[in-house]
Nucleic acid binder design. Sequence first.
DNA 1: ACTGCACCCTGTAGCCACTACAGGGTCAAG
DNA 2: CTTGACCCTGTAGTGGCTACAGGGTGCAGT
Lengths: 138, 138
Amino acid sequence: MRSAVLTIGNLSKATGTKVETIRYYERIGLLAAPARTAGNYRAYGKTELGRLSFIRRARELGFGIDQIRALLSLSEKKRRSCKAIDEIAREHLEHVDRKISDLVMLREVLHTTIQECSRGTVATCRIIEALSPVGQNR
Amino acid sequence: MRSAVLTIGNLSKATGTKVETIRYYERIGLLAAPARTAGNYRAYGKTELGRLSFIRRARELGFGIDQIRALLSLSEKKRRSCKAIDEIAREHLEHVDRKISDLVMLREVLHTTIQECSRGTVATCRIIEALSPVGQNR
DNA sequence: ACTGCACCCTGTAGCCACTACAGGGTCAAG
DNA sequence: CTTGACCCTGTAGTGGCTACAGGGTGCAGT
């Protein structure tokens, strides 16, 4: 039993990817079009399983499709320096850092606003007041 | 000079919203269709300026369109309790909190992975290794 | 009166990364 | 030989815009 053939459903379960998503990855060229069975079913092997697992892990880490494309292509050039890979990862880390600090600032404003809410009527609600332009709040 | 009439471009500048976005808000019913001039230009007044400012502030705080719809409708019922408003805001705060903690966890994994990178060749790159399924990394 | 330009109009398509059908075909178990 | 789980293609929808294309309007300068 060498490298069983996987249907799209098997591959889906094995990688935790929805069937539609796998077909989507094929459509956008992230996965190559696989061999087909007599009944026109997609037939996947270990190679595709590996590639899809890689993609999923990278997605979980928040990499974008184009970044993953680059990572995949770089990962095949084993003897090259991994400088380019490092750069993609660092760029992404910076992106995540920026996103976190944006959200933390937003959270502060939101939290403060909610804290100030008097639990009274809408007319005196500080949340609405915070959103309303000056002098429009009556 | 009582409440000058604003063109869509004026409203755009006054609120920092792109013209296309204003038209989009109209299309989805977040802004009412305004009066028109003889030449079929949209003619806005203070009311719309106020409403759009409100929407923009809420968007900056990350509220979704449907939440803003609810906030706008609630904000008109001045004598009601602001409980429902408080709830929307709290729900959104929770959402933001969850997003932050997800991103912080992700950041940790990413950061650790990058730290481990030996700056050698792709074959020994820890970033690629972290993404590769077990036993696929050679 | 004419020209040029900035602005406005509608309608449609694109972005990201999927997700969700509709309307059919295939395959294995009972 | 039927049932039901799976598979196929193709298209449209999600959120919240953004970007055209292909036209019309308004006003300042000449």
